[in-house]
Design a protein around this nucleic acid. Structure first.
Lengths: 243, 243
DNA sequence: CGTGCCTTTGAGAAATATCAAAGCCTGTGG
DNA sequence: CCACAGGCTTTGATATTTCTCAAAGGCACG
């Protein structure tokens, strides 16, 4: 269990090298990282539990040390839409950078997650004081914006098959783990969740995955997906490739 | 350079009061606004012309003084998707705030547009020096992010009728002009553009508008749409309201 | 060792796109 | 001043994608 190891690290007081390779802190001295760590609060979140909810007052910002976070929203009719999966090493809950004082979406631990958080009041200070932090926050916002934009494009112009293929590819790229036969999505994921990522239904997703499994594009079993042939999946995801 | 002379002339004639009520400059003194104006370049964009294109190096940021900007992207298959309409008084082309060095989308003048622009190199200085500017940039990014998010939700969970109703409501709220019978969208807009905003087709949009016109929810003629009964449109836009 | 989620698959229904055609404005150039 | 071209709009008929409904088996966890 990686998290147990991390908990051990906490006991011996969080090594600076945990943060120093991460983009928001890359340009900082060990002394600065020590300062930042001393202000941080560790928080372990069990699988399936919420870190914060849409609409909550945004009193903290977070860094994901280990695990995977799923970002989701629910509309008035109760339909859930999954916006994003956040891999380890990234900041999240950075509503402050969007000029907001509430969180725009809900964060759920897709696997057990080790996080650090700081009170929002420190955010501006970090941005002003630590070289590269503000830049990285902007870049993160920019990436998520870009991702949002791509989703809109896909939803507006592509068919379900292409959208599901794109979603799987994105998951393998951003949240994948190399296996000896392919790239596996690094957290448990159901047909239902994929349908919530793609504006589809679990039935349609199930049919697609079955077809792709018969074609040796991927293997799937009970919340696990291992992509064997990303190139073929990529071909299926292209706007002009029906078959 | 005669051009510089003209520019100086133009900017001298621009009254500080043109900028002082706008959110990014609201907290500034007239002296500060004068400084900002003296650094600005005016640009008049004819209807239908592009201000900048997706992928271009982001060397400027803009303020829209008058007119309406349409933000759009084109996918690999050539399908156009309209992301946003920007009303007068807002900043745009603020890729810098997203940690990008290229524009993420294309901006087209939906009506003739009066804009000011500044070289990107001034952006960080503005943010650091002028109280409220950075905040307002963040808020603007936050609003656009929020809007993007709503679009994803709508596309993923709602039917075309509801999406078109939502799109029209948003246009009336953000880009509307009060008339004696209702609220008119303040720039020419075709069925095709509405379909590109909603991931639909011009045929379906045309059928919906015809139906709504028969029901006295709106009036429409040749690129003009006047919403007579926003409440009924709002009801049609709700996730659970099929009829 | 049952209960609840996860998954699969079939059949039919519904929403919406596509194809096709025609009328209508509007601005342009003769 | 008129005629025409090109984009805008409407509407019908048909096709297709994808959802909805239905049912059943499997796996995991308490």
């Amino acid at each position: 269990m990686p998290c147990n190891k991390l908990r051990a690290e906490f006991l011996k007081n969080l090594d600076e090298s945990l943060l120093s390779p991460l983009p928001p802190f890359r340009r900082l001295s060990h002394g600065q990282i020590r300062e930042i760590l001393d202000l941080a609060h560790p928080l372990l979140v069990a699988q399936g539990h919420e870190v914060f909810c849409e609409g909550m007052s945004a009193e903290r910002f977070y860094l994901l040390l280990d695990g995977h976070i799923r970002v989701e929203r629910i509309n008035a009719a109760g339909d859930r839409v999954v916006s994003l999966h956040i891999p380890p090493g990234q900041l999240f809950g950075i509503a402050a950078a969007l000029g907001r004082n509430t969180y725009p979406a809900t964060s759920v631990a897709a696997t057990e997650c080790m996080t650090l958080w700081w009170p929002l009041s420190l955010f501006d200070g970090f941005a002003a004081r630590y070289d590269g932090f503000a830049d990285e926050v902007h870049r993160t916002v920019g990436h998520r914006f870009e991702e949002m934009n791509s989703r809109v494009m896909e939803l507006a112009t592509q068919q379900v098959e292409q959208r599901v293929a794109s979603a799987l590819l994105r998951l393998t790229r951003q949240n994948g783990r190399q296996t000896d036969t392919g790239i596996e999505i690094a957290f448990p994921i159901t047909r239902r969740i994929i349908s919530e990522m793609t504006g589809s239904t679990l039935h349609t997703v199930s049919r697609l995955l079955s077809t792709w499994e018969r074609g040796d594009i991927l293997q799937s079993h009970r919340k696990h997906i291992n992509v064997l042939d990303p190139d073929r999946l990529e071909a299926l995801s292209r706007p002009d490739a029906p078959l």
